[in-house]
């Protein structure tokens, strides 16, 4: 198992190298540059060129890449042009809000999904099953910004239960922290739930038709025990995969929802940095996000073994 983990971590190196090259080239080939943004809407070309050379952006692109990648190798992701702080610091500042949001969204999503998926599987073919599946279809297809705006209209503007946007750190208290994350958490949660519920339903149905399930039933095991202890555990591998993937997606930044709800998370940092052309932040954040994504997938793979002893990785 230790060897497996090491191998997986080593495989990160080429992935990161490819990501670094691709991100660097895309950003630097995209028109627009931080000098023009800094000088404002009405700056002319001469002023922009002047500022570019002060920022070191007039050097040949391979030289800039060399400088950057050398910094990365020595553990320095660079300095943000607009935030006046190191990229790593800017990134980890934003990780907190994103993690909080992810945990809330994922909790809502998984709870809702298991409830719906299992109900649908138990009542297969009935009106309940149909309506659960229609709900999940709706959840998958509704754009997150639309659902977000509708919820804001209802809870933020009409009922005024919850703030429409913004963020408070956990240090400001649990409720102030939570109340800003409930609406975005619900939006992301519902979308996750839709996906996971479908997966739960179909994989439980698969398992239910297995022979050992019939045996259990014939032995007189209660239906609840069959579903929750036997069926759910066996069918959990595909569900876990979906959960892992959606968790990865959330941690690496729910850009649209973070922008709509003005949550200073990783997604918003990347989006804002792109519109500011803050090169080092975009490059550094994408690298860190890649690392995070690979790690989450690794953890999910390791969890398989815990859920299903048949695929303990250490045996290989």
């Amino acid at each position: 198992m230790g060897g497996y983990v090491v191998r997986r971590l080593l495989s990160l190196v080429p992935v990161l190298l490819v990501v670094a090259i691709v991100v660097f080239s895309i950003i630097h080939l995209t028109p627009g540059d931080p000098a023009a943004i800094l000088l404002g809407e009405e700056a002319n070309k001469a002023e922009i060129d002047d500022m570019k050379s002060k920022m070191g952006l007039d050097k040949p692109i391979y030289e800039q890449f060399g400088i950057w990648i050398w910094g990365v190798l020595s553990g320095n992701l660079g300095q943000s042009i607009f935030l006046h702080k190191p990229v790593t610091e800017a990134f980890f500042e934003r990780l907190g809000p994103t993690l909080s949001l992810t945990v809330i969204a994922q909790a809502i999503g998984v709870a809702l999904a298991l409830l719906l998926g299992i109900t649908a599987a138990k009542r297969r073919g009935t009106a309940i099953d149909q309506s659960v599946m229609s709900f999940s279809m709706l959840g998958i297809s509704i754009p997150s910004f639309l659902l977000g705006s509708l919820l804001v209209m209802l809870f933020g503007v009409k009922l005024r239960c919850l703030p429409v946007a913004g963020y408070q750190p956990l240090s400001a208290g649990l409720w102030p922290h939570l109340k800003y994350l409930i609406l975005p958490g619900i939006v992301l949660g519902v979308i996750q739930a839709a996906l996971i519920a479908r997966m739960t339903r179909s994989s439980i149905l698969d398992v239910l038709s297995e022979n050992f399930m019939k045996t259990a039933k014939a032995k007189g095991v209660k239906e609840k025990t069959i579903i929750y202890t036997h069926a759910l555990r066996v069918s959990f591998i595909p569900i876990l995969t979906v959960i892992g993937e959606s968790f990865g997606g959330l941690v690496t930044g729910a850009a649209v929802i973070e922008t709509l709800f003005n949550i200073p998370g990783v997604g918003q940092l990347i989006v804002n940095s792109i519109s500011r052309r803050d090169y080092s932040v975009i490059q550094g954040s994408v690298l860190l996000v890649t690392v995070a994504y690979v790690f989450i997938n690794l953890i999910v793979d390791l969890l398989y073994g815990l859920v299903d002893p048949r695929i303990r990785l250490s045996k290989k």
């Binding site: 705006s149 933020g156 429409v164 946007a165 709800f261 003005n262």
Partner: peptide, 18 residues
């Protein structure tokens, strides 16, 4: 000065009194 890039969020925010 709260930076809210999304116009609909600014509108919702002023309608709700935030």
């Amino acid at each position: 000065f709260r930076f809210v890039t999304d116009e609909s969020t600014r509108l919702a925010g002023i309608a709700s009194g935030e």
